[in-house]
C-alpha cells in the first residue's frame, strides 16, 4: 500500500533525483507537522503578548513573550533541521517549487525569529516596542505564508490513504 502512494506521488511530481532512500512514514510526517504547529502557536502567542504589552506595559507580558519566542525558535530550528534531513533521506520528499518556497519562508522566519529573541533580551519597553513587535509580526507572517506553500505542495503531491 505504501508503494502505491509513492508511485502516485511520482506521477504528479516527477523526481529529478535518483530514486533512493526510504519513503517518509505517516508517523514521521505527523511528527514534523506537530513541530510546525508548535512553532506557529509560539510565535502567534509571542505577537499577542507583545501587542498586549504595548497597551499595558506590565513586565509579565514581555516575560511571556520572551519564553514563547525562545520555545518558538527551538521548534523552528527542529523544523529546519528535520526539513534538511528529510530532503536528503526521503526519496518521496517533495521537490516542487512550492515546497522550496515553503522551506525559504520557514528559514526566513527562523532568522527573523532569532533576531527577535535577541531584541527581546533587552530590558524594558524597547525590548518590545518598535523592532521587537515588528519582528514578531514579520516572523508570524513568514510562517503563515510558508504554511500556505506547504499546503499547496501537499495538495499536489500527497494522497491520503483512507485505509
Amino acid at each position: 500500500m505504501t508503494q502505491a502512494i509513492v508511485e502516485e506521488t511520482y506521477v504528479v511530481t516527477p523526481a529529478v533525483e535518483e530514486e533512493i532512500g526510504p519513503s517518509q512514514s505517516g508517523v514521521s510526517f505527523y511528527l514534523a507537522s506537530m513541530l510546525f504547529g508548535a512553532t506557529l502557536v509560539c510565535f502567534a502567542g509571542a505577537l499577542l503578548a507583545d501587542y498586549t504589552y504595548l497597551g499595558d506595559p506590565d513586565i509579565a507580558w514581555s516575560n511571556f513573550s520572551t519564553w514563547l519566542l525562545a520555545f518558538g525558535e527551538f521548534f523552528i530550528a527542529l523544523v529546519v533541521l528535520f526539513g534538511i534531513i528529510g530532503y536528503f533521506v526521503y526519496r518521496d520528499f517533495p521537490r516542487s517549487a512550492s515546497n522550496w518556497l515553503y522551506g525559504l519562508f520557514v528559514l526566513a522566519a527562523a532568522i527573523t525569529g532569532l533576531f527577535d529573541n535577541f531584541i527581546h533580551t533587552h530590558d524594558g519597553w524597547t525590548s518590545v516596542a518598535g523592532t521587537g513587535i515588528t519582528l514578531s509580526a514579520a516572523t508570524l507572517v513568514l510562517l503563515l505564508i510558508g504554511g500556505l506553500f506547504k499546503l499547496a505542495t501537499l495538495s499536489q503531491t500527497y494522497v491520503v490513504d483512507a485505509r
Binding site: G130, T131, T134, L135, A137
Partner: peptide, 10 residues
C-alpha cells in the same frame, strides 16, 4: 513606516 525605521535601527 515603523517597521522600516525599526529594521534600519536593527
Amino acid at each position: 513606516k515603523l517597521a522600516y525605521i525599526s529594521l534600519a535601527a536593527l
